[in-house]
Nucleic acid binder design. Structure first.
Length: 452
RNA sequence: GACCCUAUCGUCUAGCGGUUAGGACACUGCCCUUUCACGGCGGUGGCACGGGUUCGAUUCCCGUUAGGGUCGCCA
């Protein structure tokens, strides 16, 4: 009796370098990665750069950096975007542009078997005329009949007249050679899978297991393409999104952890994720829900990481931080944690900390009535007299002035905030005043009092 | 045109023959509060339609409709 060695799961993500990583592609990568990690298998990254004209180093780098940003590490595949460098893993090369010899050998094999033939300079594959059943782990058995056009000519081109093998062929050869056990990909590939199954059989091997996952659609239900809002992963990177939030959101499109769970750590998803629970219907992309998750993750970020990412976001937004100490920047950002919903909002929210001069919008300046300015002057005096410029002391001073004037604290809070930050909303007033320092606060208040 | 997949609040979803059809986002009312945000308590809103099967269908079957995908010498 031969010993049966349990073969490890081998899945792959096989993107074509087009210059951007589609959000749907990112989710396909994620589901593959999740399945590999869930089963203790291997996640392979393969670059399908057959179309030499439109591939480039930069286009491949977009994919590698996108996956890294999401935290999806691959066990086999390229280590650099340069196809000339060898990747990691025993089944390379992992760039299709480097696998020409393998394809040649396999094409010859098909010809030898009489399953492929020349036609007008190209090579065609003899496709079976009978319906093919596609066993799909998500959809179930799909019996694929020939369409009317296919019935006219069931055979299809596998090598172009210029000698280049086409997607269907190389995809199958690579999956075969790389010993892929599960093909997890978008549902747009479902009907073409009949071709792939026929090809596998032509090579004399059983096809891998298939799992076709539903597509991500625009909010209006149309297909999400390059130009659509949110379609490119890069926009999330550029906006300073928290990658964990994006990953969490992507998990929720087309898969459900059940039990009414929405927010879940990747480690939990790895435990829970499995193919049979993948949904069968397409999902529409909901930016609002992504934003909500983002805000949730942002709020829970450890302070150090929040400040680090926040500083990045400020720099990206063009805020000049060179005049400020790391301690000041850290203290300023710390007052924003738990308040902002996304880093893209940070410059607008905390820019006053780093501004030379506070500009007060005309529509807000109407708040500075003579009475308000008089109260502000009183509070300014109280602040000037403070021996220690700390939040608690500032709050006590403000409350005391309010009592003395017989007004609600809010009547002091609002004009002060406006004078010092130029905004009607922002971090806790007492804390932001402390961070700004007495000198800076008094200067800003004086500027308002001076204009009268 | 043909072939394939799908169908629960606006959106993401739970449900797998008997439920007041549950949750989340969004919207909204109230409370909390120095602003904003958070948080707490409510509210609006859904089984696409028509036939079956069944004592009983959101749930099973068929059809219709709608949406999506595919049928390339694109990937």
């Amino acid at each position: 009796m031969g010993e049966q060695v349990m073969a490890a799961t081998r899945v792959r993500f096989a993107p074509s370098p087009t210059g951007y990583l589609h959000i749907g592609g990112a989710r396909t990568a994620l589901f593959n990665w999740l399945y590999a990690r869930h089963t203790g298998g291997v996640f392979v990254l393969r670059i399908e750069d057959t179309d030499a004209a439109r591939n480039s180093l930069e286009a491949t780098e977009v994919i590698l950096s996108g996956l890294r940003w999401l935290g999806l590490d691959w066990d086999e595949g390229p280590v650099s975007p340069d196809a000339a460098t060898s990747g990691k893993g025993d089944y390379g090369p992992y760039f299709q542009s480097q696998r020409g010899e393998i394809y040649k050998r396999r094409i010859a094999e098909l010809k030898d078997k009489g399953l492929a033939y020349e036609a007008e300079g190209a090579i065609k594959f003899r496709m079976p005329r009978e319906p093919i059943v596609i066993p799909d782990l998500v959809v179930g058995d799909v019996r694929r009949e020939l369409t009317d056009r296919e019935a006219l000519e069931p055979d299809f081109v596998i090598v172009r007249s210029d000698g280049q093998p086409v997607f269907h062929l190389v995809n199958v050869i690579d999956d075969l050679e790389m010993k892929i056990t599960h093909v997890i990909r978008g549902e747009d590939h479902l009907t073409n899978t009949a071709k792939h199954i026929a090809l596998f059989r032509a090579f004399g091997v059983e096809p891998p297991k298939y799992a076709h996952i539903p597509l991500i659609l625009n909010p209006n239900g149309s297909k999400m393409s390059k130009r659509d809002v949110g379609a490119s992963l890069q926009t999330y990177v550029d906006e300073g999104c928290v990658p964990e939030a994006v990953v969490n959101y992507l998990c929720l499109l087309g898969w459900s952890p059940k039990e009414n769970r929405e927010k879940l750590a990747l480690a939990d998803t790895v435990k829970l994720f499995d193919l049979p629970q993948v949904l069968r219907h397409n999902a529409r992309f909901d930016l609002d829900k992504l934003r909500w998750l983002e805000a949730e993750y942002l709020r829970e970020l450890p302070e150090d990481r929040f400040c680090q990412l926040g500083e990045q976001a400020l720099r990206k937004a063009g805020v000049d931080l060179t005049r400020f100490s790391p301690e000041y920047i850290h203290a300023a950002l710390a007052t924003c944690k738990g308040k902002i919903k996304r880093f893209a909002d940070l410059a607008g929210y905390a820019g006053f900390y780093f501004a030379q001069e506070i500009v007060i919008p005309a529509e807000a300046a109407v708040e500075f009535t003579p009475e308000a300015l008089a109260r502000l002057r009183k509070f300014r005096e109280a602040l000037a007299a403070l021996p220690e410029f700390k939040a608690a002391a500032i709050e006590a001073a403000l409350k005391a002035v309010a009592v003395a004037l017989g007004v609600k604290a809010g009547l002091l809070v609002h004009p002060t905030r406006l004078a010092v930050t130029g905004a009607t909303a922002g971090p806790s007033l007492y804390h932001l005043l402390e961070v700004l320092s007495k000198e800076s606060v008094l200067r800003r208040i004086d500027a308002v009092l001076a204009r009268g």
